[in-house]
């Protein structure tokens, strides 16, 4: 009897449709409950509770992007290899306001360097992406060539250990393809990656426990 079959199919169809609507409605409209100990680092949305989390404030926007927290980063070097794009979307980002403009830069020179010249054997950076420029005695400016930087964190480690920590790893959003699950986050040993609101996409460290502002963020297509 086709009519009986059609009736059952109709009922199931109605049920499935209602199910979908209920699912979508609850997922979109329910208030976000903050989880005090969220146990997923790879797809963290936003908690407003704990200070150890990246988000100090509640996020009302649904649009999020990946970012890594330099204060959690242990400079393991996996960012350079784990990203889905080559070279990695994670690059060394120089927070100039924190730089001491040192002559003996822990991020630029290899530890045993005797002569502070730009000779290749002195440089820590494997791709010559960190450029050194004389400004005035005794200050030197360091700039990162984003096209050459592979995000290996060697300079970041040096600057963190001996300097002000102005060289920091950050996901560059003009390169990041914003994967559903960041493949670096998956292998990050210190759970430094999380999703951050898209209108504040950078987590640069400032001195102490403050963060540098995102106000210089330009929108790009």
């Amino acid at each position: 009897m086709p009519s009986r079959r059609e009736f059952i199919a109709k009922c199931v169809r109605g049920g499935l449709l209602t199910g979908l609507v209920v699912l979508g409605g609850t997922l979109m409209l329910r208030p976000r409950r903050d989880d005090e100990n969220c146990k997923f680092n790879f797809a963290c949305g936003s908690c407003s509770l704990s200070d150890s989390c990246n988000q100090a404030e509640a996020v009302s926007l649904r649009s999020t992007v990946w970012q890594l927290d330099p204060s959690k980063c242990i400079q393991c070097g996996r960012c350079a290899t784990a990203c889905v794009i080559t070279p990695s979307a994670v690059k060394c980002t120089h927070a100039y306001v924190m730089c001491g403009y040192c002559d003996l830069c822990g991020g630029y020179f290899k530890p045993e360097t005797k002569t502070l010249t730009t000779a290749a054997e002195n440089q820590l950076c494997p791709t010559n992406a960190l450029k050194r420029k004389f400004i005035e005695d005794p200050f030197y400016e360091y700039t990162v060539d984003e096209l050459l930087c592979i995000g290996c964190a060697k300079c970041v480690k040096g600057c963190d250990a001996f300097g002000n920590g102005s060289l920091q790893l950050q996901i560059r959003h003009n390169r990041c393809v914003n994967c559903n699950e960041c493949s670096i986050a998956r292998v990050c040993p210190s759970e430094a990656f999380s999703r951050v609101p898209a209108n504040k996409p950078y987590l640069l460290n400032g001195f102490g426990t403050e963060r540098l502002a995102n106000d210089k963020t330009q929108q790009e297509g």
Binding site: H94, Y96, V97, E141, T143, H173, L204, T217, Q218, Q219
Partner: peptide, 16 residues
Amino acid sequence: SAYTQPETLQPGPRYE
């Protein structure tokens, strides 16, 4: 000297 500190470029993500 007349050195001005460059700004840290923070390119934004794709338009929402």
